[in-house]
Design a protein around this nucleic acid. Structure first.
Lengths: 218, 218
DNA sequence: AATCGGATGTTACGCGGCTAACAGACAAAC
DNA sequence: GTTTGTCTGTTAGCCGCGTAACATCCGATT
């Protein structure tokens, strides 16, 4: 989404040694002591929170250029967990190093602050969507977001580059997998998306936006 | 909650001319061009988002020492609105000034970034709570938050200093007012809170935490 | 080929919370 | 006093979505 950092820091991050992460591998877990921010050089990472009963809520997808784990600036331990969704490479930035960097490179501080605010805006939108929209609208909105972030092709036929399971979609919109299954069928029969078993979803962004606009007014 | 800014900037903000805001008065509206962050010197401000159908979701309460409107660092126009809940005084910080400040005072940049991350963490907790908890648990959690921020007295008998209406509570937990009315009654009969008509709520923090812990496990 | 496990499709049922519609209580204004 | 407006309490009915329980499909493993 919004790439964090530009200028000299960005160049440096591109050169730094990176940690490799395979699909399904954890970058960090809930409750771990936290003292580093991460920057995604390539691949796809997911952060999520876990309820005591095991239910998982996906917070965000982070792709190349994104940062994650920034909550450690205000919290001592991770409230969330980060997992690789695909083979990925991430650069670790210890907080002391980050702060030192801020002192001699104010632009980096501004970049960081802007990225944090962008994440905050995104979180507020999610919150609002969950509070006022029905499950099918949340699904439509999420598919639009995914298409914008991970999509390939023209707006009317955008193919998601990552094959997402219905289980993942359910965690993104905070619903049950069974419901997502039915809703995807609905969206397909309304010609908003197309997909097969185990295939990557093809999204018609215009149709989805129309759908959202319709239920938005009333 | 977490006060933003310390050091010399804090001192300067205390001295700067402030805008007075009466209860019910808007600081900014949804969709306005945004080019300033605000810092609350005294009083209580609420930020919220509005759905096209008019439904309102409260994002956050901001009290003395808090900042708000920071989303303008990444967005050109306000996605939210800010209203005074009580007679308040806020200091406006135009973004260009803020950035200039960052350049010559890296600590200010770090403070800002930390505050933004604290807000982000709070937003994620709200999102998680809305996704996995029932209305009564969200209400209990929100009352605990309010007691921590606006409470007076010992943990077992914390009185909220601001008289909040059931309508406001409903917007905070994303539920209907009628439901909140019933849930408050439930909490009162379970001796977790006490209140009268038009009175300020008295919260028993320990009892509420016990309640949350019980439903949290299972 | 045979087996297995993860992902998907589909149903019946129940419940929590939304809708709609009231009535009562209190504060401020007249 | 009366009036008015806002806040609160409460009810009946409905519906979206969670729960539980299957059947099916497909890729990977053996």
């Amino acid at each position: 989404m919004t790439a964090a950092f530009g200028g000299s820091l960005r160049e440096e991050l591109e050169r730094r040694p990176a940690r490799r992460l395979r699909a399904g591998e954890y970058l960090y877990h809930v409750g771990e002591a936290a003292s580093a921010v991460y920057w995604v050089r390539e691949g796809l990472i997911k952060t999520s929170m876990v309820a005591p009963d095991g239910q998982v809520v996906t917070l965000r997808m982070h792709q190349a250029g994104d940062m994650l784990g920034e909550l450690c600036l205000s919290l001592g331990e991770r409230p969330d967990q980060a997992v690789g969704l695909a083979e990925s490479a991430v650069v670790e930035i210890p907080v002391p190093l980050l702060i030192a960097r801020f002192r001699r490179d104010p632009d980096a501080a501004l970049d960081f602050a802007s990225a944090a605010c962008a994440h905050l805006g995104h979180a507020y939108e999610r919150l609002h969507s969950l509070a006022v929209e029905s499950a099918i609208d949340r699904l439509a909105r999420t598919l639009l977001d995914l298409a914008a972030d991970l999509g390939e092709g023209p707006p009317s036929r955008t193919r998601l580059s990552y094959r997402i399971t219905q289980e993942e979609l359910a965690r993104l919109i905070s619903a049950r997998r069974e419901v997502v299954s039915g809703l995807l069928n609905q969206l397909r029969s309304r010609d908003c998306i197309s997909y097969g078993r185990r295939g990557r979803i093809m999204v018609d962004c215009d149709a989805l936006r129309t759908l959202l606009a319709r239920s938005g007014q009333v």
